[in-house]
Design a protein around this nucleic acid. Structure first.
Length: 203
DNA sequence: TGCCAGGCCCTCTTTAGGGCCTT
């Protein structure tokens, strides 16, 4: 199975279009059902960290001031990820910041994102919710560290991804799950996963 | 001055509105 990069950002808010910036990034490479490499760094974008964000993440302004410049971190993590397909939990959020922070160093994304939250809605439709922490508990996955820190969240999203791939292989008797199949699953209408997977098996 | 996300999903939908999820 192809290697994918599962990423997670911590940021100062919800929208790069309103001045929010990344404060931390992590990326883990997943291949053959396990994490084979990790990258994590705080990053200094020269912005203030709102108290609410410090309470949520534990990331303080003092920590950010000592961190490497955001541009250097983005160059490093983009090189680390390369052109591997990307995965994130609620990928629309991480995609916005990935594209915005890359744009600041005049680089652009070439690969697609898949979203572990949208896939989880199809694979585990009866989970109490599809927040990362709830899914980790629902699927009895290990808690990798403090929630809302980039590496812990990226590792738990990676564990969730592997868990869902195993579940799909078991449920539908398939040998593996490609990034393209994940993107297909996340676009399937509610209640239509069985029909979609049976069509895939016949191809 | 005060306000400000947004993409996607779901449904009692599509001429719309509300909820989820990320920080």
């Amino acid at each position: 199975m192809e290697a994918v990069a599962v990423i997670d950002f911590e940021t100062t808010g919800l929208s790069p279009d309103h001045g929010d910036r990344a404060t931390e990034i992590a990326a883990v490479l997943v291949q053959d059902g396990r994490i084979v490499d990790r990258y994590q760094s705080l990053m200094n974008a020269g912005v203030r960290v709102p108290p609410f964000i410090t309470a949520l993440t534990g990331i303080t302004e003092a920590m950010i001031r000592k961190a490497p410049a955001a541009a250097a971190v983005m160059r490093d993590v983009a090189d680390f990820v390369g052109e591997r397909p990307l995965v994130a939990h609620n990928a629309s959020f991480d995609r916005k910041f990935w594209d915005a922070e890359l744009g600041r160093i005049r680089r652009s994304r070439r690969q697609e994102f898949a979203c572990s939250m949208l896939v989880a809605r199809r694979v585990f439709p009866h989970a109490p919710s599809h927040k990362l922490g709830v899914l980790v508990e629902f699927a009895s996955l290990p808690v990798a560290g403090r929630y809302h820190r980039a590496l812990a969240d990226a590792e738990m999203a990676a564990s969730l991804l592997v868990c869902m791939e195993n579940e799909l292989c078991r449920r539908y008797d398939i040998g593996g799950v490609s990034h393209d199949l994940l993107r297909g699953i996340q676009s399937v209408q509610k209640g239509q996963l069985d029909a979609f997977m049976h069509r895939q098996q016949q191809k």
